[in-house]
Structures are given as C-alpha cells and as structure tokens.
C-alpha cells in the first residue's frame, strides 16, 4: 500500500489536501463556495477541448480555469456575485458539452476528470502538482493580510486602498492555479468537496483564523488519507468516501460549535 504507484498517490493526495484546506478557508470566508464549485467543474471543458485538438489536457484545464476566474471576476463587476459565477459556469459547461459531442473517445476521460484517478498518478505528475501547490500557498501567504481584511471587512479594506475587485481577481486566479493541476488527479468533484467541507467544519470549531486554516488542512488530510485506505480496501470510489467524510466532519464541527455556544451562555448566566 505504500510502494511504487501508491507512493505517488500518497504524496499527491497530501499536496492536494494542503492546497484545498488553505484555499478552501478563504473560499468559505468570502462566501465563494459556488466559485470553488464552478472553476474546477467548468475547467473540464478545457481538457475536453485540448484533447480534441490533440493538446495536453493540462493546458486546456489551465486555460479554462483561468478564463473561468477572469469571467467570474469580470462579470461580478456588473452583476451579483452568484449570478456572475453561474453565467460563467454554464458557458463553460456548454462548451464542454459541445467538445465532448465532437469527440468520439472522450467519455472515459471526462469521467476521470470529474471523479479523479488518484490511484493512477504517474511519477512525472507528482512534481508539478507539488510545485504548483507550493506556488499557490506562497501566493496566499503574500496576500494573506489584505485578503483577510477584504474578505471580512470589504468596506474598510476599500477605504484603506485594498480594492475588493482586485482581491477577488487575485484569489480566483490562485484558485484556478490550484485547480488546473489537482483536477486531473483527484477530480473536480473531489477538489470541491475537499475545499469546502473541511474549511466549513474548522471554522465552527475555532475562532482563531490561523488555527482554523491549520485545522482545515488537518481535516482535509485525514479525509483523503482515510478515503484512500478505505477505497483501496473496498474498491469503492474515493469520491464517495471523501464526500461522506466531509459531511460527517461538517456535522461534527457544527455540533461542537453549538455546544461551545451553549456553554458560553451558561457561563455568562452563572
């Protein structure tokens, strides 16, 4: 379970969980869960287009996730955030449907882009994913404070010269960067669950921002590692285990948060 191909699986899954935990924290903080869904899922159209043209699917994924980020940020200047995301998403899905219909042997590849091929990671895929993960985390570290300020207190941030529009664009581009490498490995649906579930659970548990990021990464790691073992043993898809574990952690976090609040009320009353 820890040799050869499986070692690649463990390394990439770990990198993906770290990326997902960090970017997911900000996606939930900013209320951008829908964009976190739309960018990886819409990007698969790019892979479909690339394979149609005989290009590397990574190039297509990168082009479409960046185009998705630009589309959401650009339309978001004129429309509500969720509407802008939805419009961008359906445009990408529409193109994806067209590309798939033109191609004859694409169905199998589309399936793996949605659900991942985590057990078939090639050795030469490991390094780019780890490098890109490091790059997106470095980018988030550089813009950490303005991103935090702009996400939590957008009006104050604007008044201090931190443009909400520019922060939105920068954050979506980081998400696109992270997505384009991780989607072929874990799949678009898995990337989405790993971004949102752990981050949502973590913020119910701790009020400290850095601790919440650390906890989101921890939960994402436990989720994929447990998922890999369970999937290896049962032959059931990894996506199933990651989805279920995400839900379980979220409910745990909520119950913990509710319990904490009840304790606080009782302490205040005493």
């Amino acid at each position: 379970m820890f040799t050869g191909l499986m070692l690649n699986t463990w390394i990439t899954a770990t990198a993906v969980a770290v990326i997902a935990g960090v970017t997911g924290f900000f996606a939930v903080l900013r209320g951008s869960s829908f964009a976190a869904h739309a960018i990886p899922n819409g990007a698969f159209a790019g892979a479909a287009g690339a394979s149609l043209l005989g290009l590397n699917p990574f190039a297509g994924l990168a082009a479409f996730s960046v185009a998705g980020a630009l589309g959401i940020a650009g339309l978001g200047r004129r429309a509500r955030h969720d509407v802008a995301t939805a419009l961008t998403f359906v445009m990408m899905l529409g193109l994806g449907a067209l590309f798939v219909s033109w191609s004859t042997e694409y169905a199998q590849q589309a399936y793996s882009l949605l659900f991942g091929e985590v057990f078939g990671v090639a050795a030469d895929e490991v390094l780019p994913i780890v490098a890109l993960g490091a790059a997106s985390i470095a980018a988030i570290a550089v813009m950490f404070r303005p991103l935090m300020l702009s996400s939590a207190l957008p009006e104050v941030a604007e008044a201090r010269g931190v443009s909400a529009r520019r922060m939105e664009l920068a954050f979506l581009l980081v998400m696109a960067l992270a997505t384009s490498m991780t989607v072929p490995v874990v799949g678009a649906l898995l990337m989405f669950s790993l971004m949102i579930g752990p981050a949502a659970a973590a913020r119910s548990v701790t009020a400290r921002p850095l601790a919440a990021i650390g906890l989101a990464v921890g939960i994402a790691l436990v989720t994929v590692w447990t998922g890999i073992v369970a999937s290896y043993q049962t032959n059931w898809p990894l996506g199933f285990f990651v989805g279920v574990l995400g839900g379980v952690f979220f409910l745990f976090g909520r119950a913990y948060g509710a319990g904490r609040r009840r304790m606080a009320v009782r302490t205040a009353a005493a």
Partner: peptide, 10 residues
C-alpha cells in the same frame, strides 16, 4: 488588522 491589514507579506 487595523495596524497593517493592507500590507502584503507575512
């Protein structure tokens, strides 16, 4: 964040 929330870097 009021002290340096607009600054880049850690």
């Amino acid at each position: 964040l009021g002290l340096d929330g607009h600054k880049l870097g850690i």
